[in-house]
């Protein structure tokens, strides 16, 4: 049997590690499920009892206050008990200590691990380890691993696009910026393809494009003005300074000149185009404040939708 390791024997999502290989039905199912969760946030009591008595462990081996907070809020609005662990890794024996950590927390009756890790594949390793040791009832959510994937970010981006644009099958979507280091970009491109977006463009300088990006079914542009022409959605990426090794960029100022999203460049997109950014933003490097705070920006709604999407994912996993 060659089934997707994220799915259980009934074809239900058991872990969420990557959007790659998940069907359109599953992705749409998550987006559909997120809709009623968005309503919960409008209530007097912003909480539903689905995960009451469940323990969700946020295992953050890499710092990310925002992502951790949104997962924490999502789990708490599902009535789960949330335990946050910020574990800074440095040593070479990561693999061993990672699984030791997991074993210890599993012994504390964990029901779900939300994992952020600098190494690609860490959440998958944990899921495999749990399966190999007969603890597949513990669910794993990838909250970002290395350059690999950030599936809940990809999903909340899809939720945002669907909210404003309704139909994926008529859209031109541009992903702009540091694709090379971006797990977000990979998750976005997989999801956009699966959901039937006919034209996906990637706009970046050659030095920030991963090799083989064209094989992902995208059109590559190095000229941002050319690439933004007529697009419905502009998905900006954060310039990941902390991941830069060597001289990939001349200077932040020069990057802004060629690849920063300014009102002038945005005028080339469709008049009703939306601008997205996963945060945290580098204002004046990849995005001009006038755009970030402008009328096309849906950056703050993305944050709000992100909680509903994470509630949907957690409740689907925990109920599988």
């Amino acid at each position: 049997m060659n089934r997707n390791p994220q799915l259980n024997a009934h074809g239900e999502l058991q872990h969420l590690i990557t959007l790659e290989g998940l069907s359109r039905e599953i992705l749409q199912g998550i987006l559909d499920t997120a809709e009623p969760f968005a309503e919960v946030a409008e209530r007097e009591v912003k909480k539903v009892p689905l995960l009451r008595g469940k323990s969700v462990f946020n295992l953050f081996f890499e710092n990310s206050t925002r992502t951790r907070t949104t997962f924490e809020i999502a789990a708490k609005r599902l009535s789960a008990d949330v335990i946050n662990l910020n574990i800074n890794t440095s040593s070479a024996s990561k693999g061993e200590s990672l699984l030791d950590t997991v074993d210890n927390l599993a012994a504390m009756q964990a029901d779900m691990f939300v994992v952020r890790h600098a190494s690609s594949g860490a959440p998958y390793l944990i899921a495999q380890h749990l399966a190999a040791t007969g603890r597949e009832h513990i669910h794993v959510v990838n909250a970002g691993d290395g350059r690999h994937a950030h599936p809940t970010q990809g999903l909340l981006d899809m939720y945002t696009i669907r909210h404003y644009k309704k139909d994926f099958t008529r859209l031109t979507v541009a992903v702009v910026g540091d694709v090379l280091h971006s797990r977000v970009a990979r998750s976005q491109i997989h999801a956009l393809r699966t959901l039937g977006v006919p034209e996906i463009r990637v706009i970046a300088p050659r030095t920030l494009l991963p090799s083989g990006v064209a094989d992902m079914g995208v059109r590559v542009f190095q000229d941002m003005k050319e690439g933004l022409k007529g697009v419905d959605v502009v998905m900006m990426l954060r310039l990941q300074n902390e991941r830069m090794q060597g001289a990939l960029l001349p200077s932040p100022q020069e990057y802004f000149k060629y690849y920063g999203l300014t009102p002038d460049k945005l005028r080339l997109a469709k008049p009703d185009a939306i601008v997205m950014h996963p945060g945290p933003m580098n204002r004046g490097i990849e995005i001009d404040s006038a755009v970030a705070d402008g009328s096309h920006s849906v950056i703050l709604p993305q944050v709000t939708f992100g909680i509903a999407v994470r509630m949907a994912v957690m409740s689907m996993l925990a109920g599988s």
Binding site: P36, V48, G319
Partner: peptide, 19 residues
Amino acid sequence: AFYRDDYNQRGLHKGAKAS
């Protein structure tokens, strides 16, 4: 759907709508 008592047996009810 979010208040059903069979969530632990049957999972999240599919096709839930916003109240």
